[in-house]
Design a protein around this nucleic acid. Structure first.
Lengths: 131, 131
DNA sequence: GGCTAAACGATAACCGATTATCAAGAGGCA
DNA sequence: TGCCTCTTGATAATCGGTTATCGTTTAGCC
């Protein structure tokens, strides 16, 4: 009957680094951002490992994907309260926006049922702002 | 010096059909929707022609692309007043939403400059609504 | 109608994003 | 430490969307 090796998840330094990256940054991160930040912790980190771990972290409900218009998915930690996103036209980074316009459901035309919504703000973040 | 053929745009039945499709539907249309609706008018219509004409109609400022989270671009006629979009979870169609939450700029955290915004509502359209 | 070049339609090629492959590396339990 | 298997990293393959190619069709001017 074998030795009963049923280890499902192995704790590697790469996986730890990727978790650490998401724990540090509260913003939604692209795969490239995760790769770049992860390499600060594990220089040999490869893009395939980033994708693999993002997928398994998403499967276990630790992160989830954030879809923004016209670009590949980003990922952020699960469990945040309802929020929206800001995209900086300067650096391309996404940031969280805690506020939410009230009564969004009322905006839909009669006959339409609204069950969720997404708001994306565009502009310049403090770092990219021309003073 | 030749015959002076400098005809830049030719009025074909395919192009007329595609314009007609956009003129009839006020919603943002995907390339597949344009193809399907266009074939009602010109059965032989091919996808390459749809892409070619969408690009030239966009270049001449008659339509423009609408990016929605996690899906390929759709296209709608230019010149509409400011509006947002509703995506039906049943049929996947996009619809216009005339209303707009006020004071969106105020939602951004301090230090962020907002110059535009996008709101997307999700739910069920009248046709897909379970009564 | 005849001519010429733009447009068409089928499909191959391309592109960026993501997944699969596989030899090498390394957790983790005896 | 030794072993076994999961994970990694490099990269090839894949995928959906879009663009390029090319022989055929056709709009538009004579």
């Amino acid at each position: 009957m074998g030795k009963g090796f049923v280890l499902v998840e192995r704790d590697t330094k790469q996986r730890r680094a990727i978790r650490e990256v998401f724990a540090r940054e509260r913003r939604p991160l692209s795969t490239d951002e995760v790769l770049a930040a992860g390499r600060m912790l594990v220089p040999s980190l490869g893009i395939a490992t980033v994708y693999r771990n993002i997928n398994s972290l998403a499967d276990e409900g630790w992160i989830h994907s954030v879809e923004l218009p016209g670009e590949p998915a980003r990922y952020e930690r699960c469990g945040k309260p309802h929020h929206h996103h800001f995209i900086c036209r300067g650096c391309g980074s996404a940031f969280d926006v805690a506020a939410c316009p009230e009564d969004v459901e009322r905006l839909a035309p009669p006959g339409f049922t609204v069950d969720s919504h997404d708001l994306v703000l565009y502009g310049h973040c403090p770092g990219c702002r021309r003073t």
